[in-house]
Each structure stands twice: as structure tokens, then as C-alpha cells.
Nucleic acid binder design. Structure first.
Lengths: 127, 127
DNA sequence: GTCCTAGTTCAAGTCGGCTTGAGGTCAAGT
DNA sequence: ACTTGACCTCAAGCCGACTTGAACTAGGAC
């Protein structure tokens, strides 16, 4: 069967039950039906949760995620918005890559202060 | 002179004065001296703010940033931690790149539902 | 001297994103 | 029949990161 209880969702996604209920309340996920009071989810919710997780990491708010994807994981019909979000991500990724390079450099660099380090200053100039 | 008032910092960094005071209170930045009550900053604070901004975008909390960089912008002496943060960033960047590709794909894709789209499923499998 | 502008303090409020707690439901096991 | 364990609801609480507001100060223009 591809139907699972909330405990199984917690076990397989790592997302706490309280968060799942909260996400449902916010309209980010839905359960296929109830069995008594207990929610019954489709296994597909695991993919939706993965999607939500990445979006959260990307710095999107729950409201933004709602706008981007409907609760069944469909992308929003607003294709312009999706493309705009992709552009936002490009910019974020570019900065994070610089940041990562800088952190790696900082972990190795022996310049007396970070701000005096030419490598760092070159990196920071691009922000 | 390389000393500027808070208004100038706001103007040049885009960070509101209330946030600057809050960051100072949290120990993320410092002013070089006071003139009466008014804070006087070094222009270097602009670079520190850029650094803080990128770290925030990267999803680091203010406490984490404090641990990574001292208020003068020096990296933490804990080089292992910096390297670990860099690794975290690598992982984040990898996910965001997938996410971005997926968003771009979603903006163009005509599959009836997103979850049925083979491209998307391939992408999601990697999260 | 007094008014304006730019700054200040400190406490309280806001907002997003959850978490916690008290008390209830329900099916299964003994 | 009763207990256990997994689930539920609903209201309230919490945390991080700021923001807002009220009341104060300091320096310059008039």
C-alpha cells in the first residue's frame, strides 16, 4: 500500500509530527483521508516534504512555497514567477559559492587580519 | 576620513539603523567611538555588514556568524569549524542548484502534474 | 535661547515558524 | 474491562531577528 500514517511519515522524513500538522494547516500538504481522527498520507507526501525542505533551505517562506507549488506538488501555473525564483536562486548560489570559497580560504589563510587578506578582499568586493 | 556616522552606514549599506544597533548589541559589529551619544563607525563596517548579509542568506544564524567571525571581521581561530561550514555550504549549494534547475524546468514543462514529470522526479531523487 | 535634525536608550511589540501541554479518541493486546 | 500507545485538537508559548514608540540628548542654524 502507498498509504502511511503520520508516525511513518515522521520516521521516513525526519519532520516532526507537530510540523506536519502545521504544514497541513498552512495548506502545504494534505492527507488523503482520515481513519477515525488519524491522518492517512500518501507516500507522495515524502517527496513534497523534500521539496518544501529544499525551498526552506533556499530561504523561501512558507507563503512563497505555497505560491510556487500547490499542495499536491504541482508547480504554480505562474511560470514567470517560477523563472523569477530561479533567477533569485542563481544570485543566491553565486553568493554562497563565494562565501564557501572564502570560508575555505579563511580556514587556511595566515594573514594577520581577515580584512587585510587580499584574497578575501577580492571575494568580498563581489558581494 | 574613514569614519562615518550611522546615517551614512544606513545610506551605504541599506541596513536600517535599528538593525545596526541590534547587531552591535549582539556583538556582531562595533563602533570605533562615540561622539556624544552618537556612534562613529569605521568604513570597514560596510564590509562586515556585507559579510553578515551573505551569511544570513546562507542560512546562518547570528550566533553562528558570531562564532565564525569576530566583530572586526576576522575569521574564527577555529579553522575546523570554518571548513565544516564550507562543507555545509557545498551541500546547500548543490541542493539549490537542483532546485533552480527544477524551477526553470517547471516554468517550461507541460507534464500534467509535476510529480509525473520524469525530469522532476530525477531531480527530486537527489535531495 | 530655541528650534531642527540626527542621533540616542530602553522596553515592548511583531512576525514567521514551529513546539508544548492539557485533555480527548480510538484500536489492539492481556 | 482496562490499559497502553499512537494519534488527535486547540490554545498558548517560544525563539530568533528585528521594529516600533516614547522620551531624551547634542550640535548647528537662525
Amino acid at each position: 500500500m502507498d498509504e502511511i500514517g503520520i508516525g511513518e511519515v515522521v520516521r521516513r522524513s525526519g519532520v516532526p509530527a507537530s510540523t506536519l500538522r502545521y504544514y497541513e494547516e498552512r495548506g502545504l500538504i494534505t492527507c488523503v483521508r482520515r481513519q477515525g481522527l488519524a491522518r492517512v498520507f500518501s507516500v507522495a507526501v515524502l517527496e513534497q516534504l523534500a521539496l518544501i525542505g529544499v525551498c526552506r533551505t533556499a530561504g523561501f517562506s512558507l507563503d512563497e512555497i505555497l505560491l510556487m507549488f500547490s499542495p499536491d506538488g504541482r508547480p504554480s501555473p505562474n511560470r514567470e514567477m517560477l523563472a523569477a525564483k530561479a533567477d533569485e536562486l542563481d544570485e543566491t548560489i553565486r553568493k554562497l559559492a563565494l562565501m564557501r570559497d572564502d570560508l575555505r580560504h579563511a580556514a587556511a589563510c595566515r594573514a594577520p587580519t581577515h580584512m587585510e587578506c587580499p584574497t578575501f578582499r577580492r571575494v568580498l568586493g563581489q558581494f
